[in-house]
């Protein structure tokens, strides 16, 4: 039995140690090769996989991704052909919530831009004046595990928090100390709007020209979820036109970002290399948990991160 890993940063030795117990060998390949002995895939968000892969690997049993996001996997199509898909859940919730809070602070206090301005000779008056965090309004879009933790961070910093959620009711959100709002309410009244929701047909491109125009001209947009939530062309235009004050992006349309990525030239933009998930501990979990799930699936056990197909 062979397992193919399509991510060249994966610690293959650790995966092999896990898969030894089911007698499978792991090898790296950018493109999944043809082979009847290939039964599992270890993959990542940069590698899209749907049922057409079964033309090359007809005996595939399990696909496990080292991410929480699953928009690169056709879970329903694969499930129909008997392939289990697994993601990793809650492996970096605290890291993402804390990185998001660090970016919210950095936007409102202007620290990244001020660093560049001081180096180029600016002093006073500040070209990027810091704002007070206490009492500022944060609109959190998405109320999953990370959204809950982010709300706690923001409330602790004295922010007023609105939550936009399709699933959580007003009572549940109030119990967390926040206020349920529509997307338009959150966009039009918040100092900072933070996206922390998954990409679905309902959320893809949810922040575009109309939504950016609703935002206050002194507001910031923070995205530590997925780039596909935002129409990036519209975002670039909104920044250039001064329709919003700035943004912080941990996710870009193409990752790794190619040299021609236009966001590098945007003003008042903090760019992060998809780093919100990271800590030494979360990174280890992100690779160890999928390998464990492939081993479980091959042994006939229930994987921890098994995804239920949604049609």
């Amino acid at each position: 039995m062979r397992v193919i890993c399509t991510d060249d940063t994966w610690p293959i030795d650790r995966a092999q140690a896990t898969l030894d117990r089911v007698g499978a060998t792991v090898e790296f390949a950018y493109e999944v090769p043809a082979g009847e002995d290939i039964v599992g895939l270890l993959t990542y968000p940069g590698c899209a996989i749907d049922a057409s892969i079964l033309e090359r690997v007809p005996n595939l049993k399990v696909v496990a991704t080292c991410s929480g996001g699953i928009d690169h996997l056709d879970v329903a199509g694969l499930a129909e052909r008997g392939v289990a898909c697994c993601n990793i859940r809650n492996f970096c919730d605290q890291e993402v919530a804390d990185h998001t809070m660090a970016l919210i602070y950095a936007c409102l206090r202007g620290v990244v831009m001020l660093d560049g301005l001081v180096r180029s000779g600016s002093w006073w008056p500040y070209p990027q004046p810091p704002r007070v965090v206490r009492g500022a309004r944060l609109g959190v879009v998405g109320f999953g595990a990370i959204g809950h933790l982010l709300v706690q961070n923001a409330l602790g910093a004295g922010m007023e928090v609105l939550v936009v959620s399709q699933h959580a009711g007003a009572d549940e959100i109030a119990a967390a100390g926040a206020t349920k709002a529509t997307l338009d309410e959150a966009l039009s009244t918040s100092d900072v709007v933070s996206l922390i929701t998954s990409v679905t047909d309902a959320t893809r491109g949810m922040i575009s020209t109309r939504e950016l125009a609703l935002m206050r001209s002194d507001a910031y947009l923070v995205n530590t979820a997925r780039a596909a939530l935002i129409d990036h062309e519209a975002l670039g235009q909104a920044l250039e036109a001064g329709e919003i004050a700035g943004c912080a992006l941990d996710a870009l349309p193409i990752e790794p970002a190619p040299p021609e990525e236009p966001a590098r030239a945007w003003t008042n933009t903090i760019l992060q290399p998809h780093a919100a998930f990271y800590s030494e501990a979360s990174e280890a979990r992100s690779f160890d948990n999928p390998a464990e799930d492939v081993a479980r699936a091959l042994a006939g056990e229930q994987p921890l991160g098994l995804l239920q197909p949604v049609s």
Partner: peptide
């Protein structure tokens, strides 16, 4: 607030990662 902003930016590497990403780095 500015202090905790700088402390959290240092621990999360925000400022250096911004520069790294602008210079073409990723992982």
């Amino acid at each position: 607030e500015h202090t905790i902003t700088l402390a959290s930016a240092l621990l999360r590497g925000v400022h250096q990662l911004d520069r790294f990403t602008r210079e073409g780095g990723w992982w």
